[in-house]
Amino acid sequence: MNAAKRKHNKRHDTHTEHHLVPAALFLLNVLAVHVVYVVYAYFNAVGNQIGWVVLLTLAFVALSSAIWIKNRIYLWCSMMYYVALFIYCWV
């Protein structure tokens, strides 16, 4: 096995690439809409809660950077963080 192939295999984690990244992208779609909605509500004095804007922006940054970095633990943590926020927000 040559060095380039070894490097590629090291970088390619099937579980992360085939399951965690799609799951994180799925949540990122929902989160993108959620962030825009909360920011709109904040600036239109509908839901005057800066806390939600901050928490969801943090979730957005965490989830997008986790997808970029592709660290398994980071992906899980950022996904759980947003799922917890989502459940708390709507239930």
Binding site: V36, V39, Y40
Partner: peptide
């Protein structure tokens, strides 16, 4: 439900 920004998204 989120203004023009959401519509653009």
């Amino acid at each position: 439900f989120g203004g023009l920004m959401l519509k653009a998204l």
